[in-house]
Design a protein around this nucleic acid. Structure first.
Lengths: 338, 338
DNA sequence: AAGAACATTGCACACGTGTGCAAAATAAAT
DNA sequence: ATTTATTTTGCACACGTGTGCAATGTTCTT
């Protein structure tokens, strides 16, 4: 029961060009042998008919679809949308096409997303959030689907895991506060408990502990601006009000800054220094000028795509650690001189 | 030359379950006839082997792939990323999978993107930016690919075009300024010249003209925050400095507001009223509290997806016009009482 | 019990493509 | 001119699936 118009096939082009169907196929297969005379006849016929190779059929026979699944939740947040943009651009540059699977709906969605990726015989999947169950990861391997895990905790066998040096950044945040003369330190983070947020929080706390400093740590809600407002309100009413707050994401930082200014009439950075993480576009806006750590989005995208685009590796697990360089703006005391 | 592990096929499942390959197929085809005994044998075998139906093969034989292409540039801007999130969610809810094609690289990319969509035999394409050439639009039709054009100027035959009432919103922006007592009006927009921006600008100017009012219109750069800063700087140094600026997007408005406050020390809305368009998340942040028009993203997404998910229509062109309701915040004089 | 109606099953074909291989054609070497 | 080497071509098969159809099995009606 075909419900659609039949597309032009290689058979139609062959008839029009007066050659065999195999000659048509060879004309559109890189590296295949075809004479210039046949080639131009086929190209002319294909253009006249509007022929486009059917990649479903090609994928079926060649076992290479060119499809890469990108799997994630919260796709509209500044960091994730920018990463998605960079990934699609890079994938297209190496001849791949991205299937986007939104996992907003549940944690189990990563497993379901990967099963969907297998149904379309995706060559690889890039997981931006959530973590696949081991049985699904094995299923991916059995189906030749390669896994890229971005900012996930566990490495799965035969996959690549791209992590940031969150702890290094957190340490640098702490030392930057100390150098700026801040003494009452706090961490503001969400209840999401995702690997990156945990690493940043723990890195900050561990470095403070190593230096014999006490830090107030406040967690609240999902990882967004509204939680930042609430976290600012909770931290800034403390009797021992912090003069420095490390926020585990920039969205939280923007909320903290707005709470400080608009609800507590504090001046940043005179009364309160703030450091975030991500370097989203809004961090550079005049209303924020937030000092933060820049997500190396270009490097994440190229690391991910270069790995999956190379020939089948030897199956070992790889972990890539990238630095998140500091972006100095005006939210830390004494940072104007940088 | 297969370069990947052969996935489990229906043939493998049939052998394990002791039934025919057709029984396996029928078990995984909704509405097909299969006994409960056979079904449970097949299901058990499929689960043991990790079988996932090959949708490439299914698409080839059934001429229905479930694939919908989403085509657009500037995917990381707040409005577009939110629309993308809503579209993927809605597409998944009706059993479709989204192929995301990024057209940042050139105008001709929409044509190339649609050709790529045809190669994967996508059932439909949702175009978020750019406009396909007529010959490509025809090619889509010939291949049974249905077109959804969002905020594009021209309707193509046998497609659906979803537009906002930009001009109505612009008129309401003007009357809101007048009601707030503003007298020196300006429009701030980009050089992008996209259909929505032009409609908003022209709607504002036409209504002003109808009322015998003069408006300064300034255009600059791409459609982003930085252009808003620059536009604010250009408009606010005028000898006849505007006391009301209609910005054709919220990103531009945030830039204008930051320029007014941080570079001209103006108070909003006392010295300057600002209205934007889109209602991006940042518009509700304490630092902005921008009065704006809300993009009906949920309705756009459901209009688009409901149309393409329904059975083949009669081929007529449809235009859907949606209202962009006003979101009152604090950037217009006298708007606190709302 | 027999006949009619309905459900289930396996076979074989088709969807559109890439490719191994033998045959044919062309180019290069002697 | 003949032989050898290389290129090109068409045929037929395979990839994995859904389905028309004939054959078989089961249920319902008389």
């Amino acid at each position: 029961m075909p419900v659609r118009k039949a597309s032009v096939s290689a058979k139609d082009v062959a008839a029009r060009a007066g050659v065999s169907r195999a000659a048509v196929s060879r004309t559109f297969t890189p590296g295949a042998s075809v004479s210039e005379e046949t080639r131009s006849k086929v190209i002319a016929a294909a253009e006249a008919l509007g022929y486009q190779v059917n990649h479903l059929a090609r994928g079926l026979i060649s076992q290479k679809t060119g499809i890469v699944a990108v799997v994630g939740a919260d796709l509209a947040t500044p960091y994730r949308s920018e990463l998605l943009r960079a990934l699609t651009e890079r994938l297209q540059a190496v001849g791949r096409v991205a299937i986007l699977i939104n996992t907003d709906r549940s944690d189990r969605s990563v497993d379901m997303a990967l099963q969907q990726a297998i149904r379309y015989r995706a060559e690889a999947a890039i997981v931006l959030s959530g973590m696949p169950d081991k049985s699904i990861s094995d299923l991916c391997h059995r189906n030749g689907l390669r896994l890229v895990l971005i900012n996930r905790d566990d490495a799965h066998s035969r996959s690549i895991q791209i992590r940031l040096n969150d702890a290094d950044a957190a340490r640098l945040a702490l030392t930057s506060f100390l150098r700026a003369g801040c003494r009452t330190l706090a961490v503001a983070t969400s209840n999401a408990g995702t690997p990156s947020l945990v690493a940043r929080e723990e890195g900050f706390l561990a470095e403070a502990h190593r230096r014999g400093l006490s830090v107030t740590c406040e967690r609240f809600g999902p990882t967004g601006y509204e939680s930042g407002l609430a976290l600012g309100e909770r931290l800034l009413v403390l009797p021992d009000r912090p003069d420095a707050i490390f926020c585990t994401t920039d969205l939280i930082a923007c909320g903290v800054m707005d709470a400080a200014r608009h609800r507590f009439s504090l001046s940043i950075p005179d009364d309160l220094s703030v450091i975030g993480f991500d370097d989203i576009p809004q961090s550079s806006w005049d209303s924020y000028q937030l000092t933060t750590f820049r997500q190396p989005i270009g490097e994440i995208a190229s690391s991910a795509v270069d790995w999956l685009a190379e020939d089948e590796g030897d199956g070992e697990t790889r972990v890539i650690r990238l630095a998140a360089p500091m972006s100095w703006r005006k939210s830390v005391r004494g940072s104007n001189a940088r």
